[in-house]
């Protein structure tokens, strides 16, 4: 389990993290979202032991991460700009990872050769950016980590490779209980893989829920009432209401069943509950709080 408690980090007077708190259960896939400058990368760098916090705590399996070699040996990290030695081949970087990560599995590395289909004797710097990212995943997955911390991980990968990489990670989650923390701007992609999401803004984690909980707590209703009838729905927790002809479209903060029951009391001609996408949930949940949130909803 990853626990971040009231984390504060200041760079030259700027508070990049201002009391960030989150909790990631073991075996979950946690999506971290937020606008540019929200503090996502800074938070991830604390979780991987790169930065030392000004205050607060970062715990992995109840142990502090900072300068904790034992904890770090179970965390594989893929930053947005992955490092490799200028002259190194894939095989040479594999040797390095093998020496550094005690659980590194050469069998897994060999098994993944087919999945990535990259010549391991090729100098990494001559590979395309997307292929370099594949090498990063190849080595990270071969390290057999308990935790994977990924910062914009699939940027530069083609759709087929994205699906393949996520598939491999989901296999690890299912088979080994690997915990994945992923920071991304791509909500549609996160929706497919995450079971928990957190959203950051101004150095704080302002919302943290399971995807199920979010989807169960908000619903889109499309309702058509009888001619001339305009029932008073102000008692309902409506976040958004629009009307096109006789069709009312409402976003209601209720579970779908309760919402339908509530409108059906007015005997509409048509009433339908439609599940919200992750993108829509965040638009309606957060849009009113902070306009900046909209910038992450692509």
């Amino acid at each position: 389990m990853i626990e971040v408690k009231s984390l504060v980090k200041t760079f030259d007077g700027f508070k990049a993290l201002d009391g960030a708190t989150l909790k990631i259960e073991k075996g979950s896939v946690y999506g971290l979202m937020g606008p540019n400058g929200a503090g996502k990368t800074t938070l991830l760098r604390h979780i991987t032991g790169v930065y030392k916090q000004d205050s607060g705590e970062v715990l992995v399996d109840d142990a502090k991460v900072w300068e904790n070699v034992n904890v770090k040996s179970h965390i594989a990290s893929i930053p947005d700009d992955w490092f490799f030695y200028g002259q190194a081949t894939v095989k040479e970087m594999m040797q390095l990872y093998k020496g550094l990560y005690p659980a590194f599995s050469v069998e897994r590395y060999n098994a993944l050769k087919d999945a990535f289909n990259i010549d391991e004797n090729k100098n990494i710097k001559y590979l395309s950016k997307g292929m370099q990212k594949q090498v990063a995943f190849w080595l990270a997955l071969s390290s057999m980590p308990d935790y994977m911390v990924l910062d914009e991980p699939v940027d530069g990968l083609d759709p087929v490779m994205r699906r393949r990489v996520w598939g491999l990670m989901m296999d690890d989650v299912a088979s080994r209980g690997t915990t994945v923390l992923v920071s991304s701007h791509n909500l549609r992609e996160l929706e497919d893989v995450c079971d928990h999401v957190g959203i950051m803004n101004h150095g704080k984690v302002i919302l943290e829920r399971s995807l199920l909980e979010l989807q169960d707590n908000m619903v889109k209703l499309q309702v058509v009432f009888k001619d001339g009838e305009e029932p008073d729905l102000s008692a309902l927790p409506i976040l958004h209401d629009s009307r096109m002809g006789r069709v009312h479209t409402m976003i209601v903060r209720m579970c779908p069943e309760s919402a339908l029951n509530a409108v059906n009391k007015y005997e509409p001609i048509v009433s339908e509950a439609i599940p919200l996408t992750l993108e829509e949930i965040f638009i309606y949940e957060m849009g009113g709080l902070d306009n900046e949130i909209n910038s992450i909803l692509v």
Binding site: R45, T48, G49, V50, E67, V69, N70, K72, S73, I75, S77, P79, D81, W82, F83, L100, Y101, P102
Partner: peptide
Amino acid sequence: TTRSTVFFHTIPVSRTG
């Protein structure tokens, strides 16, 4: 460079090491 610093301080080797 930030890129390489992040790598070396992420790997499971202490700063003392």
